[in-house]
Simulated assay, not measured.
Amino acid sequence: MRRRPVRAGGGAGGMAVVAVLALLVAVVAVLGMNTGYMKLSAPDVLRTLAGKGSPQQHLILFDFRLPRITVALLVGAGFAVSGCVLQSLARNALAEPATLGITAGAGLAVILFISYFPAVTAAPVYVLPALALGGAAAAAALIYLLAYRKGEGAAPTRLILSGIALTAGINAVQIVWALKLNPQNYAFVATWIAGKIWGGGWPFVWALLPWAGVLLPLIFLKARVLNALNLGDAAASGIGVAVGRERLLLMGAAVALAGACVAVSGGIGFVGLIAPHLARRLVGPRHQILLPASALTGSLLLLAADTIGRWIMQPAEIPAGVVVAVIGAPYFLYLLARAKA
């Protein structure tokens, strides 16, 4: 079977794709402002943004919809960039925070904390990303130890299989733990596992923003390093890259970014898998363009999923994670079928 050539994706063509993706994100964001049980037309949204809407419209837009849209944008970008980095470091098309167990580890830490402390108070909200980072780091370290073989290192296939096994185990622990909770906390844990963007207020935006504001630019600045690492460790070392240090730094940034996103988004999977693949098909493998394209694709995917989930069964909602899974599960099976053992 003849393989399709990979697009170079650099220069003006890649930038044009990034511009189109940014425009699509803006369009879906406007649609998200209009979508919900309480209808706001496009003119109503514009008037409210200009400060001329009614008190009710101001409450709906600024206190409920805008923070949720902002969280979806940040979380989608964070998962997508984290997945892009993990796929490059592991050199495996199936690598992403969910398949490597990072999402599950971060989620378990968040669920255990919220079981004892209400998430509506200010302090826990700002502590959650740090706790999620601890859970994500512990899961990543355990997966590496399970996949490591003396003299061989951690093979990409073993990393993926260990991550899937650990995720299943952690999900079982979450379910058992949820059965011991009171009805209110049980309802929260069930909603969280389904992948609903539960951190829909401005405190959650401010809790996530410093992590995204530091880690995303850091990873973007390492685009040339990721390009070099894709050539292989020997080639990267030959052109002056400190392979061990850079790999550890990028892995830590990807784990921290995914953990912070999990803290406010719930157990959403597949964004980190799908978005980098779609972006790579659009702009090619050069990380200078691939990383921002992945971020925008992830934001677009998650924001569209959340908007569809809020619209399709009004007044009830379908969690964004469920909508993404409907798309992501078949795509994951497709990639798994193509992956070499």
Rank of each mutant, 00 (worst) to 15 (best):
T99S: 15
A293H: 03
I175M: 11
A95F: 07
L249N: 04
W202M: 09
L23F: 12
F220E: 00
V189L: 08
A106N: 10
T70S: 15
Q314T: 07
A119I: 03
W202H: 06
K222E: 00
I289V: 15
M38K: 00
P55W: 08
R3M: 08
A341T: 11
L179D: 03
L59D: 14
L142E: 07
P285M: 02
V125R: 15
L218H: 00
R149Q: 01
Q57Y: 04
L128F: 11
G213V: 04
Q174Y: 02
A132V: 11
G78C: 11
S237T: 09
H277W: 10
G266K: 12
L226W: 00
G151N: 01
V255R: 15
I308S: 04
L226P: 01
T103A: 12
A136H: 15
A341C: 02
A136Q: 13
V6L: 13
L215G: 07
V189D: 02
G9N: 07
P55Q: 09
V214K: 01
F64C: 02
V17F: 08
Q56W: 08
A228M: 08
H58I: 10
V243Y: 09
A253L: 03
W211Q: 11
V255L: 09
Q184E: 09
L302S: 05
L112R: 12
F62G: 14
A339M: 03
T191K: 15
G244H: 07
A275V: 01
R4P: 14
Q56T: 14
V225F: 03
T167C: 09
R280L: 06
W198L: 08
L94H: 13
A293S: 08
Q56Y: 12
P118N: 09
G309I: 10
L249I: 13
P5S: 14
L215T: 06
W202K: 06
A139D: 09
Q184V: 07
L300T: 03
Q288A: 12
N227Y: 02
Q184D: 08
Y186L: 14
S54C: 02
L49F: 05
Q57C: 05
T35Q: 00
P330I: 01
G298C: 02
W206V: 14
T307K: 05
A341P: 11
R4G: 14
N182L: 04
I170D: 07
L215Y: 04
A106W: 10
G101C: 11
R68Q: 11
P276L: 04
K340S: 02
L46A: 06
L303R: 06
G14V: 04
V6E: 13
D233G: 14
E152R: 15
V241R: 14
L216W: 03
L291D: 00
V283P: 10
L273N: 08
N227H: 03
A337K: 14
A339W: 03
A95H: 12
P5Q: 13
N171V: 02
L40S: 00
A236G: 12
F79H: 06
L215N: 05
K222V: 00
A228G: 10
L335Q: 05
F62K: 13
V326C: 14
N185C: 00
A339Q: 13
I327L: 15
A42Y: 15
A329F: 06
T121H: 12
G284S: 12
V28Q: 01
V85D: 00
L146I: 04
V189H: 08
Q87C: 10
L300N: 09
A29F: 04
L100M: 13
Y116C: 01
A305W: 01
L250A: 07
A16R: 13
W192H: 03
L248W: 08
H277S: 13
